[in-house]
């Protein structure tokens, strides 16, 4: 899928099992939303084919999919019950009662509800016809921590109920709640697997000691991606490279290797892919 010279999605193959929560991980512009829109038939590919359940997106495939867009897709001027009635009739699910989590909100106008509650309503509406695949685009965007926890509880319960759930996110904490991750970079799959598989044997360098603040200034000045965990710095690269960079300053710091976390692994995957695209070497 191309937009001018920009390739938004390129040869992505995504498999989802029932009862599985798959996280589609990527930076802004990585192609997450475009991939979802392709799967839903909201846009057509500029080249090639898109298949969902083994067939091009159609009215029939839509019956098997539930979708919650970033904008939620709810009518803000209608009540929860009225939105529910419209969605259930449109999907031909009859007139099921409101689910337990939102049954008390039936008469509330959607626009008057907090965003977290609105997202729960959108989630319930998308799952009203018991789809085999539930697609959630940034489901917790703008939601408070408590609301996020409840939403993830809903996601997990939905998966346990037999549906496959595809969640786009760039929140690493949420990504870690997924059974499997697919990392998109420049519209292509750059890494896939469980959290441990995506991280692999990637390591970072930890810099500690009394003069860690000065070390931060030195490494930051070199353009490195430096993260602060308590009073310890975490930077990508090898111990020898970091020691070489710090040596001229003569700082009293310790340098050691530690396993990377998901965010650090993600940054490395993205950097490596971008470097390959640009034909440049990866900076430590």
């Amino acid at each position: 899928m191309r937009f001018g010279d920009f390739t938004a999605v390129d040869a992505v193959d995504l498999a989802l099992e029932a009862r599985e929560v798959v996280g589609l991980l990527g930076a802004n512009g990585a192609g997450k939303t475009t991939l979802i829109r392709l799967l839903l038939g909201l846009v057509r590919p500029t080249a090639g084919d898109v298949e969902l359940f083994g067939a091009p997106p159609s009215v029939e495939t839509r019956r098997r999919v539930g979708y919650v867009p970033q904008t939620l897709g709810l009518y803000e001027d209608l009540t929860v019950a009225e939105n529910w009635a419209f969605v259930t009739v449109a999907f031909g699910s009859g007139r099921p009662p409101l689910p337990a989590g939102i049954v008390d909100l039936g008469d509330a106008v959607v626009g008057s509800l907090p965003l977290g509650i609105q997202r729960r309503v959108a989630f319930a509406a998308a799952f009203s016809h018991r789809p085999e695949l539930l697609i959630l685009d940034e489901p917790t965007s703008g939601v408070a921590p408590l609301g996020r926890a409840r939403l993830w509880q809903d996601v997990r319960e939905t998966a346990e109920g037999g549906a496959g759930v595809l969640v786009t996110t760039h929140n690493m904490e949420e990504a870690e709640q997924c059974d499997r991750l697919v990392v998109l970079v420049d519209g292509a799959v750059a890494a896939a697997g469980g959290v441990a598989e995506v991280i692999g044997d990637r390591t970072v360098i930890e810099v500690g000691g009394p003069q860690w603040r000065l070390a931060y200034e030195v490494l930051d000045a070199q353009g490195l991606s430096v993260q602060l965990h308590g009073d310890t710095l975490r930077v990508p690269g090898s111990a020898a490279q970091i020691e070489d960079l710090l040596a001229p300053s003569g700082l009293d710091v310790t340098v050691g290797e530690a396993p990377a976390n998901l965010e650090e692994a993600f940054v490395e995957v993205v950097s490596a892919r971008s470097a390959r695209r640009d034909g440049t070497a990866v900076r430590p």
Partner: peptide, 13 residues
């Protein structure tokens, strides 16, 4: 179409 989450000019699909 315009890329919903990325840069780039529109192109006939």
């Amino acid at each position: 179409h315009r890329a919903p989450d990325g840069p780039g000019p529109a192109l006939p699909a």
